[in-house]
Every structure is written in structure tokens, then in C-alpha cells.
Write a protein that binds this DNA or RNA. Structure first.
Length: 850
RNA sequence: GCGGGAGUGCCAGAGUCUGGAAAAUGGGCAGGACUUAAGAUCCUGUGGCUUAGUGCCUACGCAGGUUCAAAUCCUGUCUCCCGCACCA
């Protein structure tokens, strides 16, 4: 067993992957930075980083100037919760965890430029979060408003839309999110909704992720319609303006703030309040499964075109977060409205020809009951009615997105303070840029129950920068997804303390050429960082508008069919594997067993066998060879292998690259008696280079080349490789023929299938068909039961001798004819080619005995 | 309900794009060689039947279709996984 500990230690100390701008072509390789938890690196991390590292090393060997950085997303709840529970300060917790991560990542042999390391909890980093916030504020991309927001009672903070899953908190799948009305900070992601949506198409991302984003942003074209109400308007959004004349109610979402306003002081107030409260107590998920429920609030709006009185309702199936939170109810042409109307005896007014006797008619048709639009096809009427509304300032065409603005306030301590001061006289005053960073104070009380940051009086109480009177600081911190929305830019210039980054450096290194990370970020981080990039571009900070050209999503690591996780108790610690088998073995194993994109099913025994292979490979470096008859085959194989491995690395099919390498290694090992030392050494050297990205330590120890090998096409000769198979198969054929004949020497029937001949001639016509020779060869392999006595007998004695048997096409045809004669003569039997033997199949000649 | 992905030996996983002898590669299991032994290494076998013969049959979720030829292309269908979901 080679001493992997010594070797890996030696090379890890020696390696340095610091990089700077050069004339070489750049390649920015990035894996999503981790949250440094106290538990250390898990197997999923290891897999992701190794996938990236293989590509980074491969690109370096190909002459690219590779930027491959690592950092830590080090603000976040676990550190703060540890503080609350165990009394450890988040700073100490975090810094200890980061140290541990770095140590573990180094021990995996990951080739990072450590000089570019960043950690988002440091003020050198988060001051730029604050700076960005101020810029966004100026641009109107950050704003504060009172809104209904999602609140997780366990996290004790509000959440972004993206952090709510099926009505539950993303971190606490057992905790219902509460809806609260609070004044909070938002980023105006919707300003870029259109671009975020349309420009997905130009990304080289997995289609699943692209689809998820499209689904999340989800634009729909429709019309905003104003219903008159007392002295104001009620606006509704509809995708079916053609049914406007069929409106028989206007319906609000129960959470809608307007509802309480409308009922104030009316006789319905009590009932409506009761109804709304009942609905709000239900969690969102079970609400969906329930029947339609609603209540008339006792007031009427005015239809914009007919001036009819339209009753106003509140109903459980109206979503606050979509459109305006109010809809126009058209029972005749919307199934949900139909059900609702039936239950509450709301008028059903048909405006499109169709059957509405027992369900809504949602199809196409001619308009009726629609005044001057009568008779018009409904599709046409959509535009016409919208146009009419626009002309009369009663509505307009809009594109409605599902994407919401991003709520970034968090009532938590361990995050980046929002740089704002509240003054009773001056209102909201942004901290001035020169006063950044607003440092997160260390001295806070974690047991207060609320936001610990609010317990530090020195932090909270400040003078207003404008009027110098007493004021207080914002104590909310930013969502940690703000930190991760621009970190990839900071790597380009991580030590800059004058600017967020230099434009020149960012434009040189960015965009990221290859990004790797989990699918779970499809509708969160992967949208946010696109939003930031587009905003930065418009602010002139950078000259590109997408952060990442190519994205790859690695698969999970499972054990016994279940994703490895602490809660499932099925975790394998990568560091244990490194200690037992070495980092190279773990790297090889994680890349070998399944393709990087699919689920990796962990099997304890696999590590062992992979480590055996590496050991075997190591020992092979001293192998002695003799002979030369298979040199040409070996050279052909190694040169095709270079092409195979190259292609498979580029396509993230590392498992196939490694399989090819293993096959050839075994071939080399088995045929040492027929290969010259020179060829062996050359092949081995190539193998070393091919393996370097996967197992860098041991290959470095064996003096591996730093350049990616080029395949010499001239040496690739599939026919030589075939000829070896050909001979081996021929031996078998002959043995069998001899056996057969010895037993029952009567009549031999050679049959070639009709189907094969059909194809054969079809391809024959295409002169340039690459497959042609292959096809011939296939036929010949089997039909070659002829050369028998002479060639074969000597081959059996000396199998290495015949590596050069290559036959021309005409020779092969001749051989086929000869075969028959030989068989007939030598064995005194009849041989015939049968035209209609159903058992024959392409490339095979059946030899049957009557 | 909508969108996406997947069903292949005992297991993991190739092959599907571009139809041409299904099961590469690894694991597991069984046998053998070498060993005092273990490990490592190297052979051989691993769907069923079998007269033991590169013999017969069965097989890529199921059912059809196209084709001389289908795991691969088409249609239908079942199951599983993932995302979104009363989106007006």
C-alpha cells in the first residue's frame, strides 16, 4: 500500500493556486460557498467541491488562467441559535467553524486560491452589503413599506417569499408561517422581473432550473380594471377582460387590508371580521383544500362600463399575493367563480356563447350581453375591451408577475446591519457612506427573547446625522441571501477597501464560467444574484448582465436510498474516509460511481475497491515490460482514451472518463508481455496526466505532466483494435467448428440474415459512411471461421503476434468465399448461405448442422 | 391540475441523442490460482432451460405501432421522484 498520508500531506503543503490577471484566457470556476456549520464538511459538500476541482485542474492543464476561490456564507441563524442555547458567541462559533472547514477542504486537496478567501460576517465584507443597500436606496431599488409579511415564530423573524414552502418555514417544516402586517425593507426585484424572465433563455443552465425560475417569475398578460367605489377605485387584475360584462361580484382576499377599512362601522363589521379571522387561523395549505367560502360585506362597487351595482365579497380562495388581491368574479366563465356563485346565490351572467348550465364555460366563442362588443369573438374582444378601458382611463394592459419584491429585513442579530437611522424629526435617514461600516456590536444579550441587537443601547441610540437630535438605529439585519448575491464578484478583488471591487478586475474575471451548486437554490439565490448582477450593470459597476454562464447542479449523496442528513442519522463523515483511504481515494470514488449530476448511492465497500485500484496503479509505475507486438494496439487505445476522457470531463461525465481509464489501465497491466517498455512508459505518463484532475496527490508524486495530453489521431486505428477482437473471436469460432464437425460431420449451413444484407447494401451506397468499415468488420469477425488451421493455431501458441492483421475490403470478401471452400474441403461438408434463416442477425453467420 | 425527470441482472450504473449481437464499468456472491494464513493480485462464473453446442428460450415498467431490425423512434398506459399549484 502506498503511503497516501505522507504523499498527500507533502503536496498539500506544496500547492499554491494563487492567481492573477494574465494574458492567458481566463476561466472562473466557482462552487456555491458554504454556510460554515459546527459539524464540518458533509459528503454532499465534498462531492460538489471535488466536481469543481476536477474541472479547475483540468482547465489549468489546458492553459487557462483559472480563478477558483472559496469563501464562507458565515452569517446566519445556526450560529445565533447556538449562542442562545449554549451561550457561545456567534463570532467564536463561526470563526472556529471556518477554520475547521478550511482545514477539511485543504485535506481534500481542493485547489483554491486561498488568498482570495472571503467571509460574509467580517465587516470588510458586509460593509459592501451596506454600501449596496445605500446605492439601491438611491436608485429606488430598496424601499420600506408596511406590508403583510410572512413571519416564522420559531426563527422569530420575517421571511422572504422564497423562504416559505407550502405555508411553512423553510427551516422549520413543522411551523406555520404567520401573516403579520409590519413595516419592512424590500428590494425591488420586480423591477427586473421582465429581464429576469426573458433572459433565462440565453443561459446554459439545466432546463429544470430554468423551468423552475420561469415558473417562479411567471408573467401573465392581462388587464387592470378600475371599479368605481365611493370616491375611489378598486383595482382588479384579470386575464379575461373579454368577460368584463359578466362580472357579478368583486371579491377580496381575506388578508386584504382594505377589507377592514370597508366594513368599519357598518352593520356587517362583526360578521365579516369573524369570517376573516376564521380563515386567517387556518394554515395556507389546508385552506387550499377547502370548499369555496365567502361573505358579502354589504357594500357595492360600480361596474366601469355598465354602471351596475356590483356586490363586494371576501372569499377564502382569493390570494393576496397575486395581482391586486382583489378579483372580478365572473361565474359564467370561471369555474371557481361558478362554484362560489352557486353557493352564495350570486348572479350568473353569461357573456360568451356556450353551455353554462352546470359548469362555467371557459372556452372560446362569440360575445353576448356585452353592449357594443356583442357578436365579437372573445379573443378579439380582449384587446378591444382593454383598449376601450384605456381610452376612458378605466384600466390598462399590464403584465402581472408571480415574483414579488424581496423582503430583506430580519429581526435577528447575526447578520449585516441595515445602515439606516430613524429620527423623529427627519424620518428615515440613511447612514452616510463615509460612516460605513455600521459594525455589528459584539456585546448583546442573547436571552432577551427578541432581537438581541436591540439590547445594545450604544448601538441603538445615536444622533441623527442631519439634525443631531436623538435618534435610533435600525436593528433589523439583512437576509443572508443578500450576502450571497454578490460574493462571486468580490473574489475578483477581495482585498479592496476603497471600492466594492475594481471594475477592471471584475470585468476581467467575470462572469463566472462554470458555477456548481444545489438545485434547491433555483428560485432563491439563483434569482437574487441575477437581480443583483442586472442592477449592478445598470449602475455601471460591471459590463455584463448575467452572473453565470454555465450552471451545473450536482446530485445528492444518499445512503440506503435516503439523502444523507444528520436528522436521518445516516451520515458518513468525509474526513473519516480521508483518514482511512486518503483524499485521492475519496475523490476518485465520489467521481467514479455515478455521474456528477445524478444521485450518488453511498456504499461503504466502494471506497476499498477504489483505493485498491489507485494502489495498483501506483505499483504499476515500476512495471517491467517486454515484447512489442501489441504496441500499435496500445498506442491506438491510449490515444482514443485521451479523446474519450477529454470529452467526458467537458460534459461532466466524470464517471465515464474514469471507467475508460480503468479499462485501459487493466489492459496495460494484462499485456505487459506484449508491449515495449517505451510504449508502456508513454502510455503510463499519459494516464498520469488524465488522472491528475481526479487524484492530484498521487499523480503529482509520480511526476505527472502539467499539460493536458493531446491525442495523436494518426495513431488511433480502430481496425487494429478490432483485429484483436477479430482474432480472439476467430479462435472461438474455429474451436467450435472443429468440435461440431468432429461430432457430426455432415452438413454446415452458413446463413446471413436478409435484414443484414438490406442494411449492408443501403450503407454501401453511401460512400462516405464512416460505419462502412465497421460494418464489414463485424461481418468478417464472425465469418472468419476460415483462416482456421494456420493462423489460428499459431495464434494460440503466440497470441501477441497477430496484432497487425488488417484486411482490406476486397480481401475480406475473398476470405468469406475462401471460408466456405475451406470449410467444405477441410471438413468435408456442405456450406451454404441461406437467405431466409430467421435466426441470423446482423454481423453473424450462423453455422448450423442438419 | 400544470411543468420537469426517471423505470435496464442481486446492487449501483452504462447503453437511448444518431435503431444494428443489451447489460460496459464497479460492487456483491460463487469457484479457482498464488499464499503458512490473511490481505492484495490474477483467472472463471453469475436471467432461465440445457442434449453442454458462441444450442434453445426469456428479458430493458406494461400494451400496442413503425422497421428487414427497437432498451433506443411513435402512440397509449402504469408506477416513482422533483418543482409549482384556487395565479383570476
Amino acid at each position: 500500500m502506498y503511503n497516501f498520508r505522507k504523499i498527500e500531506d507533502k503536496w498539500q503543503k506544496k500547492w499554491n493556486f494563487e492567481t492573477k490577471k494574465s494574458s492567458k484566457k481566463k476561466f472562473y470556476m466557482l462552487e456555491m460557498f458554504p454556510y460554515p456549520s459546527a459539524y464540518g464538511l458533509h459528503m454532499g459538500h465534498s462531492r460538489t467541491y471535488i466536481i469543481g476541482d476536477v474541472l479547475a485542474r483540468y482547465k489549468r492543464m489546458n492553459g487557462f488562467n483559472v480563478l477558483h476561490p472559496m469563501g464562507y456564507d458565515s452569517f446566519g441563524l445556526p450560529a445565533e441559535n447556538a449562542a442562545i442555547k449554549e451561550g457561545i458567541h456567534p463570532l467564536g462559533y463561526t470563526e472556529k467553524a471556518i477554520k475547521n472547514y478550511i482545514r477539511q477542504q485543504k485535506s481534500l486537496g481542493l485547489s483554491y486560491d486561498w488568498s482570495r478567501m472571503i467571509a460574509s460576517h467580517t465587516s470588510e465584507y458586509y460593509r459592501w452589503d451596506q454600501w449596496i443597500f445605500l446605492q439601491f436606496l438611491k436608485k429606488g431599488l430598496a424601499y420600506r413599506k408596511k406590508a403583510l409579511v410572512n413571519f416564522c415564530p420559531k426563527c422569530n423573524t420575517v421571511l422572504a417569499n422564497e423562504q416559505v414552502e407550502k405555508g411553512k418555514c423553510w427551516r422549520h417544516s413543522d411551523t406555520d408561517v404567520e401573516i403579520k402586517e409590519l413595516e419592512q425593507w424590500f428590494f425591488r426585484t420586480t423591477q427586473y422581473a421582465d429581464k429576469l424572465y426573458r433572459e433565462i433563455e440565453k443561459l446554459e443552465w439545466p432546463s429544470t432550473i430554468k423551468d423552475m425560475q420561469k415558473n417562479w417569475i411567471s408573467p401573465s398578460k392581462g388587464t387592470l380594471v378600475k371599479f368605481n367605489f365611493e370616491n375611489e377605485y378598486i383595482e382588479v387584475f384579470t386575464t379575461r377582460p373579454d368577460t368584463l360584462y359578466g362580472v357579478t361580484a368583486v371579491t377580496f382576499a381575506p388578508e386584504h387590508p382594505k377589507v377592514m377599512e370597508l366594513i368599519k362601522g357598518t352593520k356587517n363589521e362583526k360578521d365579516v371580521k369573524k369570517f376573516v379571522n376564521k380563515i386567517l387561523l387556518e394554515d395556507k395549505f389546508s385552506r387550499m383544500e377547502k370548499d369555496k367560502e365567502g361573505i358579502f360585506i354589504g357594500k357595492y362597487a360600480v361596474h366601469p362600463l355598465t354602471n351596475e351595482k356590483i356586490p363586494i365579497y371576501v372569499a377564502n380562495f382569493i390570494l393576496l399575493e397575486y395581482g391586486t388581491g382583489v378579483v372580478m368574479t365572473v361565474p359564467a366563465h370561471d369555474q371557481r367563480d361558478y362554484e362560489f356563485a352557486k353557493k352564495y346565490k350570486i348572479k350568473i351572467k353569461q357573456v360568451i356563447v356556450g353551455n353554462v348550465s352546470d359548469s362555467a364555460y371557459e372556452g372560446e366563442g362569440k360575445l353576448i350581453n356585452s353592449e357594443k362588443f356583442n357578436g365579437m369573438n372573445n379573443k378579439k374582444a380582449m384587446a378591444e375591451i382593454t383598449g376601450y378601458l384605456e381610452k376612458n382611463k378605466l384600466g390598462k394592459e399590464v403584465i402581472q408577475y408571480k415574483l414579488r419584491d424581496w423582503l430583506i429585513s430580519r429581526q435577528r442579530y447575526w447578520g449585516c446591519p441595515i445602515p439606516v437611522i430613524y429620527c423623529d424629526k427627519c424620518g428615515i435617514i440613511p447612514v452616510q457612506e463615509k460612516d460605513l461600516p455600521v459594525k455589528l456590536p459584539g456585546n448583546v444579550n442573547f436571552k432577551s427573547g427578541g432581537n438581541p441587537l436591540a439590547t445594545n443601547k450604544d448601538f441603538v441610540n445615536v444622533k441623527c446625522p442631519k439634525c443631531k437630535s436623538n435618534a435610533r438605529r435600525e436593528t433589523d439585519t439583512m437576509d443572508t441571501f443578500v450576502d450571497s448575491s454578490w460574493y462571486f464578484l468580490r473574489y475578483a478583488d477581495n482585498k479592496n477597501n476603497k471600492q466594492i471591487f475594481s471594475r477592471e478586475k471584475a470585468n476581467y474575471w467575470l462572469p463566472v464560467d462554470q458555477y456548481i451548486g444545489g438545485r434547491e437554490h433555483a428560485t432563491g439565490h439563483l434569482i437574487y444574484f441575477r437581480f443583483f448582477t442586472k442592477a449592478f450593470r445598470d449602475m455601471g459597476l460591471i459590463n455584463f448582465d448575467e452572473p453565470v454562464r454555465k450552471l451545473f447542479s450536482q446530485g445528492d449523496v444518499n445512503k440506503e436510498g435516503v439523502r444523507m442528513s444528520k436528522s436521518k442519522g445516516n451520515v458518513i463523515d468525509p474526513m473519516e474516509m480521508v483518514n482511512e483511504y486518503g483524499a485521492d481515494s475519496l475523490r476518485f470514488y465520489l467521481m467514479f460511481l455515478s455521474s456528477p449530476g445524478s444521485v450518488f448511492e453511498w456504499d461503504d465497500k466502494g471506497m476499498k475497491s477504489v483505493s485498491n485500484f489507485i494502489n495498483k496503479f501506483y505499483e504499476l509505475s515500476n512495471a517491467k515490460c517486454k515484447g512489442k507486438t501489441k504496441d500499435r494496439i496500445a498506442l491506438s487505445k491510449i490515444n482514443s482514451l485521451v479523446e474519450i476522457v477529454t470529452e467526458n470531463i467537458e460534459n461532466f461525465r466524470y464517471n465515464k472518463a474514469l471507467i475508460g481509464i480503468m479499462e485501459f489501465t487493466n489492459y496495460l497491466n494484462r499485456n505487459r508481455d506484449y508491449i515495449s517498455q517505451k510504449t508502456f512508459n508513454e502510455s503510463y505518463k499519459t494516464l498520469l496526466a488524465l488522472l491528475y484532475p481526479f487524484i492530484p496527490h498521487v499523480t503529482s508524486e509520480l511526476n505527472c505532466d502539467n499539460k493536458w495530453p493531446k491525442s495523436n489521431r494518426k495513431l488511433i486505428n480502430k481496425e487494429i483494435e478490432y483485429s484483436e477482437n477479430f482474432l480472439q473471436n476467430t479462435i472461438l469460432d474455429v474451436h467450435n467448428i472443429i468440435n461440431l464437425i468432429n461430432k457430426k460431420p455432415r452438413k454446415i449451413k452458413l446463413s446471413v440474415s436478409e435484414s443484414w444484407k438490406y442494411d449492408f447494401y443501403k450503407r454501401l451506397k453511401k460512400e462516405d459512411s464512416k460505419d462502412f468499415n465497421v460494418l464489414i468488420r463485424k461481418l468478417m469477425i464472425k465469418e472468419h471461421g476460415k483462416e482456421i488451421p494456420k493462423i489460428i493455431q499459431s495464434y494460440i501458441k503466440n497470441p501477441g503476434k497477430f496484432q497487425d492483421v488488417i484486411l482490406s475490403q476486397s480481401e475480406e470478401v475473398k476470405i468469406l468465399e475462401d471460408n466456405i471452400k475451406i470449410l467444405e474441403n477441410e471438413f468435408n461438408c456442405d456450406v451454404e448461405i441461406s437467405k431466409n434463416d430467421a435466426k441470423a442477425y446482423p454481423g453473424k453467420v450462423s453455422i448450423l448442422i442438419d
